[in-house]
Amino acid sequence: MSMSEHPAALAGCNLSLNAHVQPWVDRLVAEADALRVQVRRDESGARIVDAGIAAPGSVAAGLLVGEICLGGFGSVALKTAATDGWPSWLEVASSQPVLACLASQYAGWSLAASKEETGGKKFFSLGSGPARALAAKEKLYAELGWRDRAERGVIVLEVDRAPPPVVVQKILRDCGLPPEGLTIVLTPTSSAAGTTQVVARVLEVALHKTHELGFRLDHVVDGVATAPLPAPSPNGVEAMGRTNDAILYGGRVHLSVRGSDEAARQLAAQLPSRNSKDYGRSFAEIFKAVEYDFYKIDPALFAPAEVWVSNLDSGSSFHGGALNMELLRGLWLKEA
């Protein structure tokens, strides 16, 4: 059976990402001062939450934004222990991993505007979070056999400036939302919240790679993952490099699946990042070497470092990959 012949993983799903996540969004707004974020309405009436541009933001805001990206169908927690030689780790878990990670958290919605459209500087961002599933512009939603319906929506943009009106209007139009029903969360990667919410994608990176490898998504039952949380870098490319490295070299994922032991064993062997020809160098170095063209990077690199796969049908578990904390400590740590 080919991947296209597999049952759609979310066919028949009657859960709503955007309706379910609203208490998390309301908390982000209600606790704005404590989380060091700023909330305003733009000229259209859409709500903008600045979590790291003019506002300082915080790790706590990043944890909450991480859970918002998961549609509230997953948890993101900070663990403070010097495990494997690094003090701060994120732990992500979801019992709805396909819905939370692929249908929601994955940054797959291209939102761009030309200089002519903005009246100044061109704009580009990849939208992530629940509102993606209202627009359902990506072919992924046809493969999942599902899209969301709700009267309110939230989207997260990893940007260092607010989206221009033309992009806000596109989001409203494609999601079928009134302006007062839309919340846009802005988290530059160079901020504490931005770094945190990107590293919180460690489970999603594993789910995306699992899908790319052709494993049946309807056989993915549960997921738990951890990754080290680096300090944010004020340099945008370096900040992006650190968050990617945290997952590629420090990400650990445990997937619970159904199906055959052979499929589970193959997934554990093929999923880790060390299968990539680009493995072993910092992401910032790799990105620079391909002249900042994301699409020239070996896709196999975008994966966690270490993987366990447990087959619930047989009780067998399989392991592949390994952490490379020596590389991360060399990149991130300056000895006192």
Rank of each mutant, 00 (worst) to 15 (best):
V307Y: 01
L207E: 02
N275K: 11
E5S: 13
S44G: 01
G71F: 12
F283N: 00
A206V: 02
I286C: 03
E158A: 08
L229G: 11
L126N: 12
L331R: 13
L140D: 12
D50F: 03
V257M: 05
A336Q: 15
A200C: 04
L217Q: 02
V154T: 15
V21P: 03
F302L: 02
D245R: 03
R252C: 03
L157G: 08
C175F: 00
D160L: 12
R132M: 08
A193L: 12
L157T: 10
Y249H: 08
A193K: 02
D50T: 07
G320C: 09
F294G: 12
L255V: 04
G153S: 09
P234K: 01
S260T: 12
C175T: 00
S191D: 10
R161V: 02
A135K: 09
E91P: 01
V205T: 06
T189A: 06
T210W: 06
A135F: 01
R274G: 11
A227Q: 07
G12Q: 11
V59S: 06
R147H: 13
R265W: 11
A133T: 09
A93Y: 10
K137M: 14
R252H: 03
S317H: 14
P299A: 05
E326F: 07
G259K: 07
E238Y: 10
Q38C: 13
A60M: 02
A93C: 11
P97A: 08
V92Q: 04
G223S: 12
S94Y: 00
V49E: 07
A51T: 02
I184A: 04
L28I: 04
P163V: 03
A81F: 12
L64W: 07
E151Y: 02
